[in-house]
């Protein structure tokens, strides 16, 4: 493959942004392999669909016992919240923290490091391709949820329009955040405990266990300053139209701030991290 591209006339034309040129190729590879392993992929999605369904059931039961509404959410609004959460969680989730461990331990990072583009680009392209294929499972899942729980949802025009860029920012925040933490695998082989800690915090602070308005006051205060919420809960609440324009703008600014922080960390740490990688047999 490398040989071929090296001798082909196209290679003499240097792309102004080589990493951008690599995206279609990464995308195509991942798309095809995801379609090939579609059953395995679909089964992985069961947990993804079940989790919001479980919490929705819990909160519906609570709302029932409190006379139909709790913490400003009616049963129908909980259903709408978790329907969007299912979508947002699917579109923003990553598996890099699990994969990094294998890459470093089994040395498959060697290949990624040899390529002329930063390995994060391959990860992003693979991630997006996977999600597009798996939407075939997620969308029916959302449909089931809607039929079983009857959401009440009144779309707010400007808010729904803002949802798209906010979701894209949320995706990038979660991706860069988890990629940053995943780099810990270069320093220690025991990253599971760290991952577990991250996932536990995320469950509470991102709005997955409950909309953060239902958390104890000090917890939701903390959550509103941390990146977890801006990756998942915030896009969901924007889609639902629950936020005022001021709150939405403040949220977007915080999203951008966190994105800048993560980007800076990766830029600083990556070179040092990659230098620690030693492939066996070099």
């Amino acid at each position: 493959m490398t040989m071929e591209t090296a001798t082909s006339p196209r290679s003499s034309r240097v792309h102004p942004r080589p990493w951008l040129a690599a995206y279609p190729a990464f995308f195509r590879i991942s798309m095809l392999s995801n379609i090939q392993y579609r059953v395995a992929g679909a089964i992985w999605m069961i947990g993804m669909i079940l989790e919001p369904l479980i919490y929705l059931t819990v909160w519906t039961t609570v709302a029932d016992s409190q006379g139909g509404a709790v913490g400003g959410f009616t049963k129908g609004e909980f259903a709408a919240y978790y329907a969007f959460l299912l979508l947002v969680n699917h579109l923003t989730f990553t598996w890099v923290m699990h994969e990094f461990q294998y890459r470093v331990q089994y040395g498959s990072f060697s290949f990624a490091l040899l390529r002329p583009v930063h390995p994060i680009h391959e990860d992003i392209a693979m991630n997006i391709a996977f999600k597009i294929v798996q939407l075939a499972v997620i969308l029916p899942g959302i449909l089931v949820l809607c039929v079983a729980f009857r959401p009440t949802f009144e779309p707010v025009g400007w808010s729904l329009a803002l949802f798209v860029p906010v979701l894209a920012l949320g995706f990038l925040i979660r991706f860069l955040f988890e990629w940053t933490l995943a780099m810990a695998a270069f320093w220690t082989t025991r990253v599971n405990a760290l991952n577990q800690m991250y996932f536990s915090l995320q469950m509470f602070l991102s709005g997955r266990v409950a909309p953060i308005a239902l958390l104890p006051l000090w917890v939701s205060d903390v959550a509103q300053h941390l990146p977890f919420y801006y990756a998942i809960g915030f896009p969901v609440e924007v889609a639902l139209g629950r936020l005022s324009p001021e709150e939405a703008i403040k949220g977007v600014l915080l999203q951008l701030a966190w994105l800048a922080i993560m980007g800076a960390i990766i830029a600083l740490v990556w070179k040092n991290a990659a230098r620690r990688f030693t492939a066996v047999g070099s």
Binding site: V58, V62, S65, V70, A193, M197, S200, F204, A210
Partner: peptide
């Protein structure tokens, strides 16, 4: 490490219960 991981799982589970029961008396 295992104790730590399991402990975190437990804290998560119990924390969730705590949040639920901050809104209701019975589930």
């Amino acid at each position: 490490i295992q104790l730590l991981e399991t402990g975190l799982g437990l804290v998560t589970a119990l924390g969730t219960i705590w949040i639920v029961f901050s809104q209701t008396d019975t589930l």
